[in-house]
Amino acid sequence: MRLDIPLDLPGHSFIDQLQWLETWACLPKGALSNSADTLAAVANEGAVKMVPVLLDCMNCQAWSWPAYDAHIEADGFTYSDDPLTDMAEQIYQKYRANKMAIHRKSQMEPLKHLRPYWELCGRCASSTGDEDATLILDADDPFWTTHRVPWRCEQIDCRCYVNSLSEYERNNP
């Protein structure tokens, strides 16, 4: 049995998540949030169901998204040969990644007394964009609220994640 992550997460309502995605993807205000009910109906159904709804939200028309253009120019990963479908897929993947990261953070927060260190893994842990980079800091370090981390990552196709660590795991990798 598959357990879905709830649409509304602590401090991050579904509408807030859609509005953040609109800003991140340079979409017109309301492009996603005005279709919240339709998107909510397919949000846990995967890309096959959600990407066509995202395309409908954008009236199947391309828009200006400078970060996406830079990603493609740098020979970034694409999900589809059709640019519009790929843009919708990138939005879905960012929604999914952020939602999972927010949910993971909500699971790690109550365990800080047992696992007081957090390890950031992936591009977000490196100033050079190294995929294999790691950074270990106290769970209460201000870094987690002021820097690019999985629950607030703005990179396209970023696969960063955070693990919680005990004192033993931190000292004995």
Results as ranks from 00 to 15, higher is better:
13 S>G: 10
15 I>N: 05
25 A>E: 12
51 V>G: 01
38 T>V: 12
36 A>Q: 14
24 W>K: 10
17 Q>C: 09
19 Q>V: 12
19 Q>A: 14
36 A>I: 08
23 T>A: 14
12 H>L: 13
45 E>C: 03
39 L>V: 07
35 S>E: 13
18 L>W: 09
13 S>T: 15
22 E>H: 11
32 L>H: 01
23 T>K: 14
41 A>V: 01
47 A>Q: 02
43 A>I: 00
46 G>L: 01
31 A>T: 06
53 V>C: 01
21 L>N: 12
22 E>F: 10
16 D>W: 09
50 M>P: 01
45 E>G: 03
29 K>Q: 15
21 L>H: 08
9 L>E: 10
24 W>S: 07
13 S>A: 06
25 A>F: 11
37 D>L: 13
33 S>M: 08
20 W>D: 11
19 Q>M: 12
29 K>H: 13
17 Q>A: 13
40 A>C: 02
22 E>V: 13
14 F>R: 02
9 L>D: 12
52 P>Y: 02
29 K>C: 11
22 E>G: 09
26 C>F: 15
49 K>F: 07
24 W>T: 10
9 L>T: 09
16 D>S: 15
10 P>D: 09
46 G>S: 02
44 N>C: 03
34 N>M: 08
18 L>T: 08
50 M>S: 02
53 V>P: 00
44 N>I: 00
20 W>Y: 09
35 S>L: 07
24 W>E: 14
43 A>R: 00
26 C>V: 07
10 P>F: 08
36 A>L: 05
35 S>K: 14
53 V>I: 04
36 A>N: 10
52 P>D: 06
22 E>Y: 13
41 A>N: 05
33 S>F: 09
13 S>P: 07
38 T>M: 13
28 P>I: 04
32 L>G: 07
23 T>D: 15
47 A>M: 03
19 Q>Y: 05
30 G>T: 06
15 I>P: 04
29 K>N: 13
25 A>V: 15
10 P>E: 10
45 E>T: 03
47 A>H: 00
33 S>G: 10
17 Q>G: 11
17 Q>L: 14
25 A>R: 09
51 V>D: 00
36 A>H: 11
52 P>R: 04
33 S>L: 12
47 A>C: 00
47 A>T: 00
33 S>K: 05
9 L>M: 08
12 H>D: 13
24 W>F: 11
32 L>F: 06
48 V>I: 07
27 L>R: 01
21 L>K: 11
11 G>M: 09
21 L>T: 11
17 Q>V: 06
48 V>R: 10
32 L>V: 03
27 L>I: 01
12 H>W: 15
35 S>G: 06
14 F>V: 04
39 L>T: 11
17 Q>M: 14
54 L>I: 06
10 P>G: 05
50 M>W: 02
